[in-house]
């Protein structure tokens, strides 16, 4: 397999806090690779180091075949969209795009085919100042600017944070199509539900990678059973379930509660009879497959110590 990014033991501290603790992973050519974790997990620091904007304390990486110290080579090969969409608010949509094209020594026309699909949505507003665009539009323009020099590896730092579910879904569809063209994409996000959009994901928390695998494999590996329950009185249900001593954890998931338990203890009948006993109505109890969020929380709790 052709590896586009290979990181080995990247470590970075800010004063006393360790932002990244010996992070290692590799990303294959044409892969859509996600870093999933909350704010402060170290995602941005990692992307900054891999794009040579920041130096690591120790460790190294190969980005498109070049070591981190080979800054110039890496910089001309990667596209990077920092956390805050970095656009010039006083320049128009077109001027922003042209500027980034020029700075990377190319023109908008030369590489128009790459951004065409995204840019057509922006075209009606091309003379509008970037500062006056909506969140979703800014996000698209920032993506165009990061793509205009035809990078071989694309780094997107939290491109969907603070963006509504509709725009988020659209954005991921765009990434899926970009991937089709052979581009290697690294994305970070705090939204667990976006993991399923990636080929592989790294779950990251407090500077450490908890797990790396395709999202389907991560959920398959989940060592416990997850039972989803609901009833007409969720508040009471929650209190009742918390009394179940063989439950490893109880968390709310939308309209359901997810109860995790060891496989040998798991039994939907036991829970059902408990609920009946407590007088719950309209109950639903079912064994379900774990989601990424179940896995993440499980890994978080097991990595505490």
């Amino acid at each position: 397999m052709n590896e586009r990014v290979i990181a080995t033991n990247i470590t970075k501290s800010f004063r006393s806090t360790k932002a990244l603790d010996a992070v290692s992973f590799s990303v294959n050519e044409g892969e859509l690779f996600g870093f999933i974790g909350p704010d402060g997990a170290g995602k941005s620091t990692l992307f900054r180091i891999l794009t040579t904007v920041m130096n690591a304390d120790s460790g190294d990486a190969l980005v498109d075949g070049f070591h981190l110290k080979d800054e110039i080579a890496i910089r001309s090969r990667v596209g990077y969209m920092p956390g805050k969409f970095s656009l010039y608010p006083d320049l128009s949509v077109q001027e922003n795009l042209e500027f980034f094209a020029k700075v990377f020594g190319t023109t908008v026309n030369e590489n128009y085919s790459i951004i065409k699909e995204i840019y057509v949505q922006l075209e009606p507003f091309k003379d509008r100042r970037a500062g006056k665009l909506s969140g979703g539009m800014k996000q698209k323009l920032a993506l165009c600017c990061a793509l205009i020099h035809k990078p071989r590896v694309l780094f997107l730092d939290e491109p969907t944070t603070g963006v509504d579910p509709v725009s988020r879904r659209e954005f991921w569809e765009m990434l899926g199509r970009l991937k089709q063209s052979g581009l290697t994409i690294l994305v970070s996000t705090p939204y667990m539900d976006e993991a399923s959009r990636c080929d592989r994901v790294a779950l990251i928390q407090k500077g450490k990678i908890l797990d790396i695998d395709p999202p389907g494999v991560i959920t398959k590996k989940f060592p416990l059973h997850v039972i989803a329950v609901k009833s007409d009185n969720m508040q009471k249900l929650r209190k009742d379930i918390l009394k179940v001593e063989y439950a490893e954890s109880v968390y709310g998931f939308g309209e359901y509660l997810h109860i995790t338990m060891k496989k040998e203890n798991s039994s939907t009948e036991k829970i059902e009879s408990l609920l009946k006993q407590q007088g719950h109505q309209h109950t639903e109890v079912k064994l379900i497959e774990a989601g990424i969020e179940d896995c993440f929380m499980h890994l978080m709790e097991h990595n505490k110590n």
């Binding site: 974790g37 909350p38 704010d39 997990a41 944070t161 603070g162 705090p190 667990m192 928390q205 968390y251 709310g252 969020e293 993440f296 929380m297 978080m300 709790e301």
Partner: peptide, 16 residues
């Protein structure tokens, strides 16, 4: 107003 954006899933639930 969007009190839980960016927090980890456990904290998010504690917040709720």
């Amino acid at each position: 107003d969007e009190p839980t954006s960016g927090v980890d899933p456990i904290t998010r639930r504690q917040f709720w």
